[in-house]
Design a protein around this nucleic acid. Structure first.
Lengths: 205, 205
DNA sequence: TAGATTGTTAATCGATTAACAATC
DNA sequence: TAGATTGTTAATCGATTAACAATC
């Protein structure tokens, strides 16, 4: 019997649902409906119900969804009912901002090391860390079993650093360098490039 | 005669194509093909040709695309054949990193002001700017005709600041706060939340 | 000319929406 | 009970891919 995989586009919406639920929870709300959630997010109620139904039945007819319960379920589905150790590579402005950002750990990710290749940065403190030498990346990261990396180096060095990350056993890369990366099967990359988003919007101006 | 609009998902890929072409140009390349471009980007050649054909005929059979010409055309389509003035709201780590980032201006966007509401930050220098008082945002931004803003304030303040931006005539918001924003018709929002990307990937770990 | 690659059409594939029985 | 809202099915809509004539 063939199991059809969950569409990637559906998985991508779950973190958005989770984020909204956690905010509602903060606001002291206890239940919500697909309609209310949809209005907040600009997504149709039908789509939210359809997406969730891929994973199970989380609601009650007539009542809607218990916010805390649904959030717990989504955390479990997304595997953020635990904390993933993360490394940052690149101790420039972006890497440093991320190293000091507290919003990661509340949501499933904890920065544990930051690397750079600049001798003037190595050893310097950034938030609670000291910058490590990228030359030691593989030997530090691989034995620690770390699977997630944030890449914040210049575009020119991004591919070679990525190869290093793969060698170190990293399987998920959040790439801030404005360049497409080549990675082997089984390694995932997500891209953050503010300029592509700005250009997308300027089309409509 | 009904003109069918370009699908939003196609517009969203154009900045990716443009970025790859500009990199190829830097590498000294003069021509490319839909196949080569597709391999770099992990997109099918057919899709690239189909996307581009929505806007015109930019290639030559047998030869492919002139990189500089196609990049120029895409810049014009995306309206980044000019420079858009941009404001940043929020002078925390992220806002400051963006204010100092030089990669924006090469690609169509120039930061011209940065605002915050924290008295200890107002007046302080960040990169080439001095932080302005958010209380003066509307009176500074509206007469200047600025249409693009980057929002880098805490989630709790994001919606009220957004309302201010809309009042000031902003029509495109790049939102770094981890919250969905409500905006009137005609105002566009794009979201950057590293954690949603990390959670998307952790599903597959 | 022979080889390569475009632009475009038609076919396929996948995602979204509408509608409603089930039921809390 | 009456009203509300889920989970799910079928219909619709839209996006991607495959294929190929045109042509550089």
């Amino acid at each position: 019997m063939a199991v059809k995989p969950i569409p990637n586009i559906v998985v991508g919406r779950l973190p958005i649902y989770l984020r909204a639920l956690q905010r509602m929870s903060q606001e002291g709300r206890r239940v919500t409906s697909s309609q209310e959630l949809g209005e907040r997010l600009g997504i149709s109620a039908a789509q939210i119900r359809k997406d969730l139904s891929q994973f199970g039945e989380f609601g009650k007819q007539g009542t809607g969804y218990n916010i805390e319960y649904l959030a717990d379920q989504l955390q479990s589905i997304l595997k953020v009912d635990r904390v993933w150790n993360v490394i940052i590579v690149g101790a420039g402005d972006i890497g440093s901002a991320l190293a000091r950002y507290n919003g990661l750990s509340e949501r499933g990710f904890r920065v544990v090391m930051i690397f750079d290749n600049d001798p003037s940065k190595i050893g310097q403190p950034i938030g609670p860390f000291h910058v490590k030498n990228i030359a030691n990346l593989v030997e530090e990261v691989q034995p620690a079993g770390i699977k997630v990396a944030i890449l914040a180096v210049p575009a020119q060095q991004a591919q070679e650093v990525t190869d290093l990350l793969v060698e170190a056993g990293i399987r998920a890369v959040l790439n801030y360098a404005p360049i497409s990366l080549a990675v082997p099967e089984g390694v995932r990359v997500q891209y953050i490039d503010p300029v592509t988003h700005l250009q997308h919007m300027s089309y409509y101006l």
